[in-house]
Amino acid sequence: MKARVAASVVLALAVALGASACTLVAPQATTKHYDASDGISGSVGQVDVRNAMIIADAKGGTVGNLVVTLVNTDSKSHRVRITAGQQGSTPAYVTVEPGQVKQLGRNPQSANGSTVLIPGFDAKPGALFPVYFQYGDATGLDLTVPVLDGGLPEYSSLVPPTSAPAQQ
């Protein structure tokens, strides 16, 4: 009788260990970074670049709206240079204060410093477009950013005007 109880206990432990031990060697998916939205992310120094994407008019506008969130994890402010397209393109500059989460591109109709419009934009939705982020002497970050249109309701308000507004 004791042998049968002992065998049952050993068998139950073996089944329990066999059913749960795979987590000992399997990688945990929650520890892997991934981009949960349509954009792409990266880091340049102490500034995180999150969910970068370009919204363009599918009907053939000549302006792209860079939609991105910049997160400054440093204790001092940084002036981030953003160059879209070829390295010779005119860069945009955005200052991100210490600990600040700065969203760009949420209001493409205004030129209040929270929008980076790309004039002469000819990439079609579905393409990838090069964007370079850099500040100070930190190593820059090259991202190939996806180009989307305003077909989805959450992106419809992010479509830029068909021509770039005059710079002030």
Rank of each mutant, 00 (worst) to 15 (best):
M1C: 12
R4K: 14
V5P: 00
V9C: 04
L11S: 11
L11P: 00
A12K: 05
L13R: 11
V15I: 15
V15H: 01
V15K: 00
V15E: 01
A16P: 00
L17Y: 11
L17R: 02
A19C: 09
S20C: 05
C22L: 10
C22K: 07
T23A: 10
L24G: 15
V25N: 10
V25D: 02
A26V: 05
Q28M: 08
Q28T: 04
Q28A: 15
A29M: 11
H33F: 05
D35E: 15
S37L: 09
G39E: 15
G39S: 04
G39R: 13
G42I: 15
R50W: 02
N51F: 03
N51Q: 12
A52G: 06
D57C: 00
G60K: 02
G60N: 09
G60A: 13
G61A: 05
V63H: 12
L66A: 06
L66I: 13
V67R: 10
T69N: 05
T69F: 00
L70F: 01
V71Y: 14
N72F: 09
T73K: 15
S75N: 11
S75W: 03
S77Q: 14
H78E: 12
H78C: 02
V80L: 10
V80A: 05
I82M: 11
A84Q: 04
S89W: 01
T90A: 08
P91G: 08
G105V: 01
R106Y: 13
P108V: 07
G113H: 07
T115Q: 07
I118T: 04
I118M: 08
F121L: 13
D122L: 12
D122W: 09
D122Q: 07
D122F: 06
A123H: 12
G126S: 07
G126Y: 10
L128N: 13
P130F: 02
Y135P: 06
G136H: 06
A138K: 10
A138R: 10
D142W: 09
L143V: 12
L143D: 12
T144C: 01
D149W: 01
G151W: 04
G151F: 09
P153C: 02
S156L: 04
S157K: 10
S157Q: 15
P160A: 07
T162C: 02
A164W: 03
P165K: 13
A166G: 07
A166L: 14
A166N: 05
Q167H: 03
Q168K: 11
